[in-house]
Amino acid sequence: MPRFALAMAKRILGALRDLAPIFAVVIFFQVVVLQQPFPDIANVIVGLVCVVLGLALFVQGLESGLFPLGEALAQGMARKGSATALLALGFCLGFGTTVAEPALIAVAAEGAQVAADAQFIGESQAAQDRYALEVRLVVAVAVGIAIVLGVLRILKGWPIHLFIISGYVLVMAMTLFAPDEIVGVAYDSGGVTTSTITVPLITALGVGLASTIRGRNPMLDGFGLIAFASLTPMIGVLGYGMVV
């Protein structure tokens, strides 16, 4: 227990350091630029204590929970040697973690509103809901495909920049042909798909795979899954906009 307390104390110090810039920015703009007192100071202090403790717990839990979990899974799957099972896991993880992502739900709903205002789809609530749901499904499938492609890349040792650069070229070309109303949503959907729990797990999965498979370098081959997952949703949503 004392070892745990010591580790937590260290994490809390680390969390304070991580959060110091936010405190500084907020205080500076509130006091110097806007020249206003803080509203509800008691609430703010309770909140800050929660933020610091929460971040400390999260980072401690990462190292003892999420990272070993992702790596154990990656190593088990690599040793089993079934590429199909590994790719299936990749697709399920990508799709399953994205489809219910709150940030994505918000962006998709906003996008439906824009599309309705532009007479791109019907004005009715039902039409908007359908559109938002379809955008979410497209993004989730795209992330699933991204992880599959990314895992395949790790297995084969293909260089990442060929994929990413062709992805960029594709995005640029599709932007020319996709309707204007969907371009903003499409670009933003790439950024919102990767949540705080998914990122550590997927990173651990990639690094675990690359360090288990002989001939792969974890630095060169282990990273990159997140990059795929932020690129394919843009292609998916732009494509969806061109088809609908």
């Binding site: 929660c50 933020v51 401690q60 839990g61 929970g65 999420l66 729990i197």
Partner: peptide
């Protein structure tokens, strides 16, 4: 560890 991640993120 996973429980800590959950609790930490919620906090």
């Amino acid at each position: 560890g996973s429980v800590m991640v959950l609790l930490g993120l919620a906090l």
